[in-house]
Nucleic acid binder design. Structure first.
Lengths: 151, 151
DNA sequence: CTCTCTGCAAAATGTTTGCACACTC
DNA sequence: GAGTGTGCAAACATTTTGCAGAGAG
């Protein structure tokens, strides 16, 4: 995991310092595939780093978001969730399938060819019409997962 | 606005009562094009209905969401926002263009032909693969609006 | 007249902030 | 050493809940 230096460089070049806490938090995000809330991260960290407080997790996540290392998601169930952006994670571009009952979130990377065409067309159309500089998009499909369906 | 009866019927048939507060809240959502937070609605209502409390607004919004009359959105800026679903509003299917700087949200209904094809294909593919019963989708484009761009 | 709905105040939840000390560069 | 980063406790903002009374069917 020497690739760590990538985000270390990014932080340094943005004028921030690399500390034990920040490194630990990024590592949790890196090793975990799932979207994590501030508290999730705190819980994972706590056994090994009992001296890292929840405040630091919040502050670090904000920092990571600002520097483009992590992205924040709000799925509508109270807590904000974070994951590393594509540039800093091993995960590829994906979207979400959200169960409105049990709140499970499935990431999918399928059907991206269809998406590419659609997004490209729409994005350029919207950019022109609304003079927006679009740099990202979120697609969520909502419904019931197989378990909740069968009840 | 005699069409009101549509949601009144829906509430009644779901076993809920129609009250002054509920009627007033739905009317605010109906007359306002924009996404409104619980507090927004409370503020609009308060001059004319000073006896409707914020608690009732929250409880009514939850009820409307459960009965499918309104939809809840969390754009990631703290407060949840609501709008009537397509079935109960005059608004047509749309998506969002969100400025990450000033938080302006533009609704757009353009480019829906391209979307239809893409969504239909993806939805059926995802349904099969993940055994999800998909009944809705959200598409948000993120970036900078024209004003924030030029700064 | 019954049972749902409501307002109020209080609690709960998630997140942010002030301050003195600790650690990075 | 200078100045950023941190933990703790307290503050905050939004949303939820308990309860006794009001209003709908």
């Amino acid at each position: 995991m020497k690739e760590n230096h990538k985000w270390e460089k990014k932080l340094a070049s943005s004028g921030f310092r690399m500390t034990t806490g920040r490194r630990a938090i990024i590592n949790v995000l890196y090793k975990n595939v799932k979207h994590l809330s501030a508290e999730d991260i705190y819980m994972v960290l706590h056994p090994q780093f009992p001296n890292i407080g929840l405040t630091t997790v919040y502050r670090t996540l904000e920092l990571l978001e600002q520097t483009g290392i992590a992205a924040k998601f709000e799925f509508g169930h109270g807590k904000a969730k974070y994951e590393l952006t594509e540039e800093y994670s091993t995960k590829k571009h994906h979207h979400h399938l959200i169960c409105r009952n049990c709140r499970t979130i499935i990431d999918y990377s399928d059907f991206m060819e269809d998406e590419l065409t659609y997004i490209a067309k729409t994005e350029s159309g919207l950019s022109k019409k609304y003079k927006f500089l679009i740099d990202n998009h979120i697609i969520n499909f909502l419904g019931l997962c197989s378990k909740c369906r069968s009840k």
